[in-house]
């Protein structure tokens, strides 16, 4: 908790984006320039929680999501890995904004469907396979401290595979995933963050305190 509370003290930033960069980001994402300013203050807090380097490390990401920097969570790891577009072990500000933009209520549904597919495609094969699905079900059961028998888990996974795998080849491709989401839109409900609709109103102090380089 102490480490998390330290997030609240914004430290000196080392990678202050230029105003022009914010304009470009705004033009290429669902955010306005003011919202990107607000996101920058949020980013500064998150990225200096543990390491004072204005980069979000996995431990800092876990601390924000799970309130514990050392807690294991398959799904938080997957989200982090997708945000870390450069695959260099940290999330930079631009990666943070571009990835969060997919979670904006105004972002295209197609982008949300694709992002969710990539989250679930653990081995990045282009398919969600039976074993991956089972691994994720087992992970959420562990996370929730719930116990199901192997037969029950298999039954859930098999039923889902039968429902989604319309081509019958034993794996779920992007097209089948999209069809499944069209039938059950709630499957991507966690791909939309209402907070992002108007982050400047939700966090007005961010705007007041933000100092982009002109």
């Amino acid at each position: 908790m102490r480490a998390f509370l330290s997030c609240l003290s914004v430290k000196k930033n080392k990678q202050k984006p230029r105003y022009q960069e914010a304009i470009i980001l705004a033009s290429e994402t669902s955010f306005t320039v003011n919202e990107i300013k607000a996101l920058y203050d949020l980013f500064k807090k998150l990225s200096n929680c543990i390491y004072d380097d204005s980069l979000i490390h996995k431990e800092e990401f876990h601390l924000a999501l799970l309130r514990n920097s050392h807690k294991q969570n398959l799904f938080a790891d997957r989200v982090f890995d997708l945000f870390d577009v450069k695959h260099n072990g940290v999330i930079e500000f631009e990666e943070f904004v571009r990835s969060l933009s997919i979670f904006h209520p105004n972002a295209p549904k197609e982008d949300k469907i694709t992002f969710a597919f990539r989250l679930y495609d653990l081995r990045q094969t282009g398919y969600i396979e039976h074993e991956e699905l089972k691994e994720m079900v087992l992970a959420i059961l562990t996370e929730s401290e719930l116990t199901l028998s192997d037969e029950e888990v298999e039954s859930i996974v098999n039923k889902t595979m039968m429902e989604a795998d319309s081509k019958g080849d034993g794996k779920i491709d992007q097209e089948e995933w999209k069809e499944l989401v069209e039938k059950n839109p709630a499957l991507i409900k966690n791909m939309t963050l209402p907070y992002l609709k108007d982050i400047t109103l939700a966090f007005p102090s961010f705007i007041l305190n933000t100092d982009f380089e002109e």
Partner: peptide, 24 residues
């Protein structure tokens, strides 16, 4: 069981990015 596996998985705390926006 009558749950879709993805319905269950989506309940993970690791997917709840609202945690990023909590002030304290």
């Amino acid at each position: 069981p009558c749950f879709n596996a993805f319905d269950i998985i989506s309940l993970s705390q690791g997917f709840d990015l609202s945690g990023l926006f909590e002030k304290d």
